[in-house]
Design a protein around this nucleic acid. Sequence first.
DNA 1: TTAAACTTTCACTAATTTCTGAAACTTCAA
DNA 2: TTGAAGTTTCAGAAATTAGTGAAAGTTTAA
Lengths: 189, 189
Amino acid sequence: MVSNMKMTPLITSAVMHFGEMGSRWGFNRTVGQMLALIALNEDPITAQEIADALNISRGNVSMGLKELQSWRLIKTQIVPGERKDFFVPAGSIWELANRVFEERKKREIDPTLSLLRDLLLDTPSNSNEEHAQQTLAEIHDLLESVTAWSQELQTLGPEKLNTLMKLGASVGRILEFKDKLVPGKTTAN
Amino acid sequence: MVSNMKMTPLITSAVMHFGEMGSRWGFNRTVGQMLALIALNEDPITAQEIADALNISRGNVSMGLKELQSWRLIKTQIVPGERKDFFVPAGSIWELANRVFEERKKREIDPTLSLLRDLLLDTPSNSNEEHAQQTLAEIHDLLESVTAWSQELQTLGPEKLNTLMKLGASVGRILEFKDKLVPGKTTAN
DNA sequence: TTAAACTTTCACTAATTTCTGAAACTTCAA
DNA sequence: TTGAAGTTTCAGAAATTAGTGAAAGTTTAA
């Protein structure tokens, strides 16, 4: 089968870069390249086209597509009259970024939170363990805060995030007024 | 040399876990273990003690310490009357987390932002490239927002983050009032 | 049903990353 | 200055992770 994939220089450098970065973002090179290719391409593309465009084995493409689907970053699109699957991004850039973020949280934070909760139940047996547990508690609290906060941001969506962002340094000052604004929520400080 | 490192079960499981997670956080297993050991230990410890406690080669410890120092997560502490270096965490948990975050941003976001800026300067040569560039622009804007926002949070510090957190869902509502709170730029801040 | 078109699996190879340990280097008390 | 105590470097070994491609498995138009 002959592919009709373009891969102009612009696309190529983006795809290659996403491949390089892929490993830092939680997947491997080819998976990163595949994601870029699908996200940047105007039309849905097939597994075979991906294999041709990236010059990687068909089997590898199949694995990669499975992984991208498990991350919920791509989905198949039914093209009437076509037997094979066509792939497209599974949402807007904001949604995709959110999913990557969520998935990474699941891998990078959740297991630690779970372990920390367990370890904090133990009774320290000496001064050194007491100190260790104290530190673990701090880590636990920090991770919980970050987790909760990031969830908050996700529900806000990109526009509100932007508004918040432009507020910039004044966020700190706003906090001082919060009691006037939201009377019910009196936070101890 | 005989080590006096404890490594009770509690410490051991924490250290092992941080080792496993290490690779997901941007460093490798032994570096993760070393960081945990230093962070959890009440007293400053030496390179040799680390090597003994973790049962890894002295050379590996030296490399790892260098890396942890380059991340600014640990520092040496001078112990009077002692020739060798003693290592301690380079700040509070919040500070350490910030540094990890910062360093990861440098590795995971900055290079992409830089490439995207370049690619967006090119003139698209066809409809597909036009679409690709449009997508790249969205990614660029998202990364910029996230970058700026995370910087904002860092300056807030953990207590204010917590306050903001407890505000929770009402953040959205606060945004609607922001104009009343933070009037035009004419007012002194 | 059948068989062509397509996908998935998996044992193996390739590439990359991590770790070791011996040798070279540094520091400082005597 | 010497040498004991300590540190760093780095070539190669070990371990891990990624990628291939052939064979087995699916699906569906005819």
